[in-house]
């Protein structure tokens, strides 16, 4: 007998949403928040939380998310945490000023810590992603060339097992923080101090090949990648643009507007959310798919399905009755929904 699904799943509160990805039959989202226990002190938390999904009209089998990875620090906020995934798992890269630890989830149910160095002079990971079956990290080295580290965490027998395939290559570049994206056959980054330049290359275990640069018509604020496709969010004056960039450097505008968009790309599908509107397409300009019930805080894309996270306030019962009526109070929730798009 088929299990009745749910139309949505919820996160409590309005945490900052980083990126969100589909990992086979799970929807994973990175959240970040500032925690002030009883106003005594502050610490910062970023988590990867997930919910199982299925390809059905009511896609959620659980109404709540469960935590897979949580990182806490008193150094600085870790907003803008990025995830990159394939069917075997996902890699998590916290944002903010913290030297980001990089974790792969999961082997035998436990995360594999790929990078964690708290020294002020430590190399900083600017981006990570799956290149076929290789997980690649581009790291900026202080006063030196960048390095591209490669792993195969999905082949490990345990979370602490030695990865004999791990390798490090040198890349003659200085990528800016947070502007690197990796996908099968492509790595893209913005060189430090050159916000209107996009560097494209083919990643290998020894470094990169076929490095070329593409002039962008605005300052690059975000980069996402898919096999054979790089999606770039630009700021030009007061407006924003989302460009599809092909590996040969040709580009086409997918969207332009006045608000900073939320952008995701997965298996060729580009999703853009602005305000309460979710747009998507596999080629050309994105078109409206749906309207959300609240401002959209994050999106995920996966071929013919997309997810978005909308901020809503609902009234929940307090358990108190007054004059025969149940007393309610407002509660903030971040609600995940999924829609299908035609291939």
């Amino acid at each position: 007998m088929a299990v009745a699904g749910l139309p949505s799943a919820s996160l409590t509160g309005w945490p900052s949403i980083g990126s969100s990805v589909f990992v086979k039959n799970r929807l994973v989202v990175a959240t970040s928040q500032t925690v002030r226990p009883q106003n005594r002190f502050t610490f910062y938390e970023t988590s990867a939380v997930e919910v199982p999904v299925r390809r059905a009209r009511r896609p959620f089998t659980s109404g709540g998310f469960s935590t897979r990875i949580v990182m806490r620090s008193s150094i600085a906020p870790m907003v803008g945490t990025r995830l990159a995934a394939d069917d075997a798992g996902f890699v998590m890269l916290p944002g903010g000023r913290v030297p980001p630890p990089v974790s792969w989830c999961c082997v035998a149910g436990k995360e594999v810590l790929l990078e964690s160095d708290g020294r002020p002079t430590a190399p900083t990971t600017t981006g990570a992603g799956m290149d076929g079956n290789r997980l690649r990290l581009l790291m900026r080295v202080p006063d030196g060339d960048a390095v591209l580290r490669s792993f195969s965490p999905q082949t490990l027998t345990g979370p602490d097992a030695y990865d004999p395939s791990a390798s490090t290559g040198t890349v003659t570049a200085r990528p800016a923080a947070g502007t690197t994206a990796v996908a099968t056959g492509v790595i893209a980054w913005v060189p430090e101090g050159e916000p209107r330049t996009l560097a494209l290359a083919t990643p290998t275990d020894a470094g990169v090949e076929a490095l070329r640069t593409v002039r962008m018509p605005g300052d690059v604020v975000a980069v996402a990648a898919n096999p054979g496709l790089v999606v770039v969010t630009l700021r030009t004056g007061r407006s924003y643009r989302v460009l599809r960039v092909l590996p040969d450097g040709r580009s086409a505008t997918a969207w332009r507007g006045a608000q900073a968009p939320r952008v995701a790309v997965g298996r060729g599908l580009v999703v853009v959310a602005v305000g309460r509107v979710v747009l998507a397409s596999r080629s050309g300009a994105v078109k409206r798919v749906t309207g959300a019930r609240g401002p959209v805080a994050g999106v995920a894309a996966d071929g013919d399905r997309l997810a978005w996270f909308e901020r809503v306030t609902v009234r929940v019962p307090t358990g108190v009755r007054r004059k025969g009526k149940v007393v309610t109070k407002p509660q903030r929730r971040t609600v995940a929904r999924i829609a299908r798009v035609a291939r």
């Binding site: 008193s74 150094i75 964690s116 708290g118 020294r119």
Partner: peptide, 13 residues
């Protein structure tokens, strides 16, 4: 002073 799986809370040096 850096993240690890056994203690998920870390601070600066």
């Amino acid at each position: 002073t850096s993240y690890n799986r056994f203690h998920r809370y870390f601070v600066s040096e």
